[in-house]
Design a protein around this nucleic acid. Structure first.
Lengths: 232, 232, 232, 232
DNA sequence: CATGAATGAGAGTTCATTCAT
DNA sequence: GATGAATGAACTCTCATTCAT
């Protein structure tokens, strides 16, 4: 069981752990190996030997760069979370109409939440949320929160703000993102089969936009619901 | 690392071996202990010694009732999933209006997905989805799928079917449930703080209903979005 | 009960795993410890902890050098069998007469089959013949078969081939060796008291030669049987 | 490792272990189960649960009849040794000539030493000779020694005593039996393939007789060695 | 600095033995 | 007397971590 210390012992701070390796290249090399192993086996299932072998360094070097397995794990998650997740949010592509723009956003989100990186991070962070609570905070801030605030800001900017009635933009953005997920995200996280055909993603995205706008669009007729007809 | 066999080797059936233990009370006692430990530490992080201690039995007894750690884990998850999850879905409480009824459903769902049992199952099954794919299937069938099909059926029954335009009831139900979750479920799964005050739950529930009905209700004026004003 | 795999699983080769240990000295040190314990307790009766303690290394180091108990056992038996057994067969010492030479061979064989190493190998290999059939083959090829073929070759070489009538030299050699053992080998293998006094060994050896030559010598008078008169 | 006590603790003799079960039928039933399991798995490899299951009794009953695994093992070996082994030695069948009679004996011995029971006893007793030295003594007395003394007695009885010159009948009998085994016994004990075709057994038996009589027969011409020509 | 052999606590699992029923 | 659930010590094997080279 060995109550794994979430973060390096504060006691060891006598020496600021300065003696650890300094070559950024080697550090990156180790993190790449760690990524492959942690992603495949999770925290408990990964072994430092395995990571060292995969990264092409010795175990001693591993410990020169990272004080413990817990520290290495955190470094790996934080790096993905801070450096790779935000890359997935680009500016919202402006479409011909507001609905077009939102559809772009919806499709981008669905692709994001079913991407291997995102699923892996979700899985690993959820697994270790009790042991490493900091990771969840970082992930949330750089992932969902980021996405939400970008969309919320867009909703309040002209010209779309003119067309919309959004008393709580953050909540509206959350609702929009929730609509994009339906059961796709849940099933994907559990590695159950998911329909990710472009046609289905398109249907989900357009449905999300329609349902969203039927409430938040300031005027215009109500749009009837869509139906999905599989290609065959 | 050793790829743990998802389910007990069929080959080993040459020796009927264990399962000598037959007292349902002791079996339940062990499962309770296992629940506490698996819930807290996950599959890999839990040790059989620890479970035995927590359950108040010896390790030998553990193995008299469950052939292996994997079998015990599956038994625990399956029990929760099959026996406890379905209990959480009751008939849909009929309210004065359709909106009332849906609000009841929404509130029930939000409470369900933020319940400790549901969160724990989600977390643990997601962690081990690759190792124990059967568990994910069982969980999905008894949880989300069940909830969806109950709501979908309700949507197509009179009197509400008269009032609604729902070309794809299952998808509509999924959208409704997705709307109920917004970011609550995601945050709760990562053990991040979640606002579960009745007022907020109420707001989320009523918002979900409103957005849903603005699309799916056959006639009537569009309802404007709601806003949440915290009590304090 | 667990059917111990005779040789390391070929399947596990996915992970090259251990064999990190490479120091021949330490390897030898471990094998010495293993020899003591396996010789005393047999395969099942020996424990890896015990071997580690006896060899003066940690259990971890044991597994750095040998992937499993089965592998260590095989390495130990194979080493004795391949490296030590053949050393026990030297050229046949030529004596003044053919009978002299055969007597030398007979005495050497009797000493060999009652030597601790040989007895131990016999005992341990017989015990585990079902589990490790390869070891029995190796032992037989390097021990009895070797001895037999050396003697068979000698029988067909001049000058003794002139004096002998040996239609099947291999079988003749087997008969000769069988005669050397009488009940000595059987008793020794069961750790029952055996008379290994030089006088008795001499008697057995000379008897074997006499009985053998009475059949295989081409000419000359028949020699009467010998009798053993204990010294005291 | 658990230094298994070779025989039941003398200390426990306070109570003469009288409380043990008394039904001879059940005792025999247990011994039959024990025979199957010990024969297949050896001492260490057999488990009391397995024996109980195979014998169709509970573990508690096992311990009512036999104080420990060691005691049960000894009882099983002693029973085979005392009751079944001697059955394998019958009177020497008298043939037309002395050579005929000896050939019958030789064939019987070769069949005996390659019989499953005999091989099993040999294997198991050799394996555990250090732990249970008493068993080896009993086996030896009831097996090889019995065979030897029967043959030795025959050698000294008329009419064959008239025809033979046997100063040491016991040793002569041992030599004769040794000649019968050549490498057959050794290979069989190690579970290596053995030629047990009637033709080969016949050849070994007749060779043994010829070699034996060439030394021990009082008069007559020397017989030349035989040769084995496989049927195909 | 980099290495990888060495460590030993602790993992999952088995099994001889006991004892309440 | 017979049962078999319960026990816990001992087993094989793993792995995070250290440290001499």
């Amino acid at each position: 069981m060995a109550a794994t210390p979430p973060f390096p012992d504060k006691d060891k701070a006598q020496v600021p752990s300065a003696a650890t390796g300094t070559s950024p290249a080697k550090r990156a090399q180790i993190l790449e190996g760690a990524a492959r192993i942690f992603a495949e086996h999770g925290y408990e299932g990964a072994s430092m030997s395995c990571i060292a072998r995969d990264a092409g360094v010795s175990k001693g070097t591993l410990y020169n760069y990272f004080d413990s397995k817990a520290v290495l794990f955190c470094a790996f998650i934080e790096q993905c979370t801070r450096e790779k997740l935000p890359l997935m949010f680009r500016r919202i592509d402006e479409g011909a109409t507001m609905a077009d723009s939102l559809e772009h956003v919806a499709r981008a989100l669905i692709e994001l939440i079913t991407s291997p990186l995102s699923l892996m991070l979700n899985r690993v962070i959820v697994s270790e949320a009790a042991t490493f609570p900091e990771l969840a905070k970082t992930f949330w801030a750089n992932g969902p929160q980021q996405a939400t605030s970008i969309l919320a800001a867009w909703l309040t900017r002209a010209p779309q703000s003119e067309l919309l009635d959004v008393p709580d933009p953050t909540f509206a953005a959350e609702q929009f993102y929730a609509l994009c997920q339906t059961h796709i995200a849940g099933r994907a996280r559990m590695q159950l089969p998911v329909d990710t055909s472009p046609a289905y993603i398109d249907f989900v995205a357009r449905s999300a936009v329609r349902v969203f706008l039927n409430t938040y669009q300031r005027s215009g007729p109500r749009q009837p619901p869509l139906a999905y007809v599989p290609d065959v």
